[in-house]
């Protein structure tokens, strides 16, 4: 195809948009709204992910060993834990250290009260970080099976809640995205169908003079893509502004207790690329598919 033809056909696409400008504005408005909802869902889900990760980092399993486990067995345990997948850093707390902690924390440093008790009254333990909190329960079960392990403590409830929240967000988010994709497709298809209808006479003449289907389609595909791009751009700017306002508000309102969690809220700079990418891909593909749908029945003759 000649460059001049391409320019001509693209120009026609823009003319369609301008010609049906009320439809254009209405459909861009609707698409922006859809993208905003999707955008909020995606941002929310990314942030929950980041929080789950953060909580996970705070998460540790504490493996209490049987009282009287020998140093040799402890060393063996340490190396065994080192091979368990899904564990991060491992800290060993010896029986003496545990005792010392109790003395320091609860007995004001006065070890006299504990006189006469066995040296290894407190069990030795391993504090293991968990890389993925979703594995906490499984890891706990796995490690409890190992030799000389008395019990394993894991804050599985908090993680469970967060993990469930994440699952729910993913399911809801997915459903919202599917629903809004359908809505957007219907909107774009109708808008372009209006253009196709306005130009049906031209299309039929094009068929008679031997224009290819590609030639007939291009203006409408251009129309769809421009609608998609325009909506993606506007929605991106709105999400950007809205997100930053939201950040300012929660930073001001937050108590120190919440500060740690709020620090986990991602800055927009980190989210800009994926959000823009999603919007553009969504906009362009909905535009293309919509234009193809809207041509159905008009390419015959």
């Amino acid at each position: 195809m000649r460059a001049s033809s391409m320019r001509y056909l693209m120009g026609n696409g823009f003319k369609n948009l301008w010609h049906n400008r009320l439809m254009t504005i209405a459909s861009v408005g609707t698409l922006v709204a859809c993208l905003l909802i999707v955008g909020v869902a995606v941002l929310f889900s990314l942030n929950v992910d980041s929080m789950v990760e953060y909580v996970g980092e705070q998460n540790e399993l504490v493996v209490f060993m049987d009282v009287g486990t020998s140093d040799e067995q402890l060393a063996q345990m340490e190396s065994q834990l080192g091979h368990v997948e899904g564990l991060g850093e491992i800290d060993f707390v010896s029986s003496d250290e545990a005792m010392q902690t109790i003395v320091d924390r609860y007995l004001d440093g006065d070890a006299g009260l504990l006189e006469g008790m066995d040296d290894d009254f407190m069990p030795a333990s391993f504090r293991c970080q968990i890389t993925d909190p979703e594995n906490a329960a499984a890891l706990k079960a796995q490690i409890e099976e190992l030799d000389n392990v008395d019990n394993v403590q894991a804050p599985t409830e908090i993680t469970d809640t967060l993990v469930q929240l994440r699952h729910m967000i993913n399911i809801f988010g997915g459903a919202i995205i599917v629903a809004l994709t359908i809505v957007s497709l219907v909107i774009i298809t109708n808008t372009i169908r209006a253009s196709v209808f306005t130009r049906r006479k031209e299309i039929s003449i094009m068929k008679y003079v031997g224009a290819t289907n590609t030639f007939i389609r291009i203006p409408f595909v251009v129309e769809g893509i421009v609608l998609g791009l325009l909506s993606a751009g506007i929605a991106f700017l709105l999400v950007w502004g809205g997100y930053n306002i939201f950040l300012d508000v929660i930073r001001e309102e937050s108590t120190s207790l919440m500060a740690n969690v709020i620090n986990q809220v991602m800055p927009f700079s980190q989210l800009a690329a994926p959000v823009l990418g999603c919007f553009l891909i969504a906009g362009i593909s909905v535009g293309c598919i919509g234009s193809v749908f809207s041509m159905r029945g008009y390419l015959k003759v």
Partner: peptide, 8 residues
């Protein structure tokens, strides 16, 4: 038009 849409 007949020429434009036939890539001339």
């Amino acid at each position: 038009f007949a020429m434009r849409v036939t890539d001339q």
